[in-house]
Design a protein around this nucleic acid. Sequence first.
RNA 1: GUGAGUGUUGCCCAGAGGCUUAAGGCGCCAGGUUGUGGCCCUGGAGAUCGAGGGUUCGAAUCCCUCCACUCACCCCA
Length: 423
Amino acid sequence: MYKAPRGMSDILPSEQPLWRYIEEKAASICHLYGYHLLSTPVVEDAGLFTHAVADGTDIVDKEMYTFRDRGGQELALRPEGTAPVCRAYLEHGLFNLPQPVKLYYIGASFRYERPQAGRYRQHHQFGFEAIGDADPLLDAETIEMAQRFLFSLGLRGFTIHLNSIGCKTCRPRYIAALKQYYSRFERHLCQDCRNRLQRNPLRLLDCKKSHCQEIAESAPKITAFLCDDCRTHFEQLQEYLNALNTPFSLNYRLVRGLDYYTRTVFEIQPQEETSQGALGGGGRYDNLIETLGGKSIPAVGFAAGIERLIANLHEQRVNISPPPHTFVFIAYLGAEAKGEALKLSSLLREQGIATTASTGDKSLKSQLKQANAHGSNYTIILGQEEMKTHTAQLRNMKSGEQSVIPLMQAAAILREIQGSQSN
RNA sequence: GUGAGUGUUGCCCAGAGGCUUAAGGCGCCAGGUUGUGGCCCUGGAGAUCGAGGGUUCGAAUCCCUCCACUCACCCCA
């Protein structure tokens, strides 16, 4: 038996309403904030990510789905959404539009890793990016928008962790200081942290081992090293967030796994904080467009993991309205009635009435059972008697009331009922 | 890549060397008199007990190997 590939799953009909709910909330918040949908291919030139996300990050070093196509091109299933958006921005000259350009996306991302709770090889992200403006007002708006999105879904109790990781000028100074501080404790660090010290010192700060955390406690803080521009930017962002009444929690140890971030970084943690439970995260990436071959164009964005949103919606028992169902079920008895049922189902659908016709040669009892299982509001019964008189039985499945109607008026009557119910 | 746990019908699960022709629940199908659902009752279909090998007179049950899933680490959505 074939199975879905490891870490990838089917989204069954029963789960679709929740997905649609999230997609609708996402689209509606984007509309409110002036963002436009941009869909990019699932596959990109692998180089896009190795340049944008950078070597040395786990995403590029060990989690990319790369392959060569028949023409020998090195391609990759996209591991994240920001780089493709920036690529499209450059490719289509969107820098000619009034800036900032606000774009959003929703779709699958792929990372080759061992799956576990909240972490899958194929997952789905909703993200939005504002490209072409460095104003901290946009950072504040982005964070507020992310918060409002989660709130509109019905999620509560999450925390916004906020930090600034500086820019090209001030971050190297900080990293040097960090390395100097940590090198004194090298012998006491865990093996992973010793590697981090060489490879990516910023991530020393978020090691979960308790003795490493103790060392991190007294480590120099990035905020003390920010250059004037970055410090002002960070201060203004906080002022704006306060003005928006958007609560945040400063977290000097928040660093993000993608190398393209500058200045603002933030991450949203759910109420029940688990080991890999971030609902979403984002930040500013002022150098990325330039890295990809464009001019120096600043940008800021956010992305949320849909599977994680769903997990949290389940945890908080948020109820979604039930899925749409068949409105009318048509049951029949006998060959003549069957032909009539087929014609009537076609007619009703033509009139915009969701209809399911019975099949086969079942007892009326079992047909009504099916009507019930389909969740139909009304069942039309066509039998020998009705054929003789050109009528139909119209049964209200909720009340059990049943009446005889002329077959020719069935569509008109049902349309009227449907109209009155949707008001 | 590393570590731990778990694999019995579509789903949830009992069984822990012979009482098993593998039990039960959900779901599915059919019936409970002539053409009427939801509740209830009865019956039915559906399982090479993850795969392969071994131990034994006898293995779902013990041993080995592999595979898959789950959880955790690394890291992130």
